[in-house]
Simulated assay, not measured.
Amino acid sequence: MPDNEAPEIDTSVPHSARIWDYWLGGKENYPVDREAGDAVLQVLPSIATSAKQDRAFLGRAVRFLVKEGIRQFLDLGTGLPTVDNTHEVAQRVAPESRIVYVDNDPLVLLHARALLQSSEQGSCDYVQADIRDTATVLEEAAKSLDFDRPVALMLLGVLNHILDDDEALRIVAGVLERLVPGSYLVISHTCDATTDELDGEAMRQAVRTVMERGGTPIRARSPEEIERLFAGTELLEPGVVSCSRWRPDPSPWTEPEVPHFCGVAVVRAR
């Protein structure tokens, strides 16, 4: 899409990024998105809290990575810009941080170019590509990132749109093989776990509701299936857990579980 050509916006069907924006309290959504979002809330009232907890996890994870010395971030599946995006959190602590956002949705990239501004010391770039095309993703990202140095690969709320397990594993492995030891992998993912606090069938019904309304297909996975996405890396404590329970302050058990799980792993020497 040429830079001066605005993408056509189809407001007749819900859009996953706009639904997520609605749950986060954003303004980049339309009646069809709010209707779909409300329909999901009817069967899974915790989903809006889940969206907010996913965003809070992003902040904690990025601050942790910056503390560990990471200054480069490759964020796949950007979604619509909202508060405390990856580059904002990272550059608030380390202004020299470099971030590349990737999304295949021209609407998302249009908003990203307009709203996501980098610090002067660092950089914030955007690539329009499908994350399935890892060769293109890496080629374009290499224009801004130095892959001879550690990079944090961020996959937040995007692999749940890859329905095939083998394809999801291939995407992660395809990028990881380019990352040097000391890099990190961060994943958050819709989860259909059934626990004392979570109703797995409610999540499955929520997924069906979105898909029946024409929204982006979603695949909720179990915690064990999500953990398999970290193959070839070393998961850090506390492992794959609810986003609300990944190293929160002050106690790991003060927040209820939400149906969005996550984990952070380090890439060791192969």
Rank of each mutant, 00 (worst) to 15 (best):
M1K: 09
P31D: 04
L80S: 04
L44I: 02
R219N: 03
V83I: 09
P259W: 08
H87W: 00
I9E: 15
V89G: 06
R204S: 04
E225V: 15
D33F: 02
F73N: 00
R92W: 04
T82A: 10
M203C: 07
G239T: 10
E167Y: 04
L159I: 11
V89P: 02
L58C: 12
L44S: 02
R221F: 09
G182T: 01
F261W: 15
I131S: 03
E88Q: 09
H260L: 11
D148L: 08
T136N: 06
H260Y: 12
Q91M: 02
L163Q: 14
T49F: 05
I218R: 06
R132A: 14
G59E: 14
L163G: 13
L110S: 15
W23K: 14
A36C: 15
H15L: 00
S188V: 00
R221T: 08
D146E: 08
A51D: 09
R228T: 15
Q205M: 12
G122M: 08
W20L: 04
S188C: 01
Q128W: 07
A129T: 06
I218P: 05
W246Q: 13
P181F: 08
L153H: 06
Y30S: 06
A142R: 14
R34Y: 09
V108C: 05
D105C: 03
V66W: 14
S50F: 03
R213M: 14
S12L: 02
M154L: 14
E167Q: 15
P238E: 07
L156Q: 13
D192R: 13
G59V: 12
D146L: 07
W23N: 08
G214C: 03
V264F: 12
P256Y: 02
S251A: 10
I131H: 07
C262N: 02
P45F: 13
H260R: 04
L145G: 09
E139G: 06
R60I: 03
I47Y: 04
D130I: 07
A206E: 10
P81E: 01
L153K: 06
D54V: 11
P223N: 12
L76V: 12
H161W: 00
G157N: 04
A114N: 15
R245E: 02
A202E: 03
F73R: 03
A17I: 00
V210D: 03
A6Y: 11
A129K: 11
V210F: 08
I171F: 12
Q91S: 02
A51R: 11
S97E: 00
R170K: 09
H161R: 01
W20Y: 15
F57Y: 15
C243P: 09
S123Y: 10
E227P: 01
L153P: 06
A6K: 13
E257V: 07
V186Q: 08
E139P: 00
D196K: 05
V43C: 04
L44K: 02
Y126S: 03
V266W: 03
L176C: 08
T254P: 00
L236V: 01
V267D: 01
G232T: 10
E224S: 15
P2T: 14
P106A: 10
T134Q: 13
R18G: 01
E140V: 00
E28S: 15
E255P: 00
E224H: 14
D125K: 15
R55M: 03
Q91T: 03
S183G: 11
H111M: 01
Q128L: 13
V264A: 02
A94W: 05
P248E: 07
W246C: 05
E28Y: 11
R149K: 13
I47E: 12
G182N: 05
I226L: 14
P238Q: 06
